[in-house]
């Protein structure tokens, strides 16, 4: 089955970010979204450890380890950047001041429940800022492969893994489709042109509803 690369999923998610939006990107895969902002638009990226408007990674050897993002990778500053302490940073998150948070997911349920912090009781649990972000940002989007590495659906009727948040996800960008969470159900908005609805439904663990047109998901090679 044809599918989008991670870069292409990130590209698609980036197209929905407005110029001037305040955005938090989760650690790892979601960080890629920053690379694909459409020309003429510039979002302002927030990192929970206390920077607004950080920029790209510095050249190797020029890192300043007091200038890092939530993933503890070195960053640079854009003009207009600011620093703040952790309580202010999470006031930005929890006070509803961020426009968008884009996170990864183990599972998303049709009512918008998200599981992305724990795969169960084994090992060391770690949650970071995920539980705060899902209840703070005006829009909580997920980017993910449509299925797990062993082919099981990640879009489900209900999550099987420990929840990060209840009813918090509003849109899911996958390797096959763009799906909104509306009224406790998945609504299909876009899918790859070469993929039939039935084939998409067969790798989705909950009913995909169609409301209006389903648009072809068209993404350039990036």
């Amino acid at each position: 089955m044809q599918k989008l690369t991670n870069n292409q999923i990130a590209w698609r998610a980036a197209q929905d970010i407005a110029d001037g939006a305040y955005v938090n990107l989760g650690i790892g895969f979601p960080e890629k979204v920053a690379q694909f902002q459409p020309p003429g638009r510039q979002a302002i990226f927030h990192t929970e450890n206390g920077i607004l408007n950080f920029g790209e990674s510095p050249a190797p050897g020029t890192e300043d380890w007091d200038l890092i993002n939530a993933g503890k990778r070195a960053v640079t500053l854009n003009a207009g950047a600011s620093f703040f302490h952790h309580a202010d940073s999470f006031a930005m998150v929890r006070g509803g001041h961020l426009d968008v948070a884009i996170l990864g997911a183990y599972e998303v349920a049709e009512n918008g429940d998200l599981a992305n912090w724990s795969t169960g009781p084994k090992g060391v649990p770690a949650v970071g800022g995920a539980m705060d972000l899902v209840h703070g940002a005006k829009r909580v989007a997920v980017i993910t492969d449509h299925v797990t590495k062993d082919g099981r659906p990640k879009l489900l009727q209900s999550c099987t893994l420990p929840l990060t948040g209840v009813g918090c996800v509003t849109r899911v960008y996958t390797s096959l489709a763009v799906v909104d969470v509306e009224g406790g159900r998945f609504v299909l908005r876009e899918k790859l042109a070469g993929l039939s609805f039935d084939d998409l439904q067969s790798v989705t663990g909950a009913t995909l509803h169609v409301v209006g047109d389903v648009i072809d998901l068209v993404v350039p090679e990036v």
């Binding site: 952790h86 649990p125 949650v127 970071g128 703070g136």
Partner: peptide
Amino acid sequence: YLAGEIALELVPQGTLAERIR
């Protein structure tokens, strides 16, 4: 932690900052 030699209280990061504040 896995040897049971240290206890862990896991707190969401924003809740941790706000509890301290």
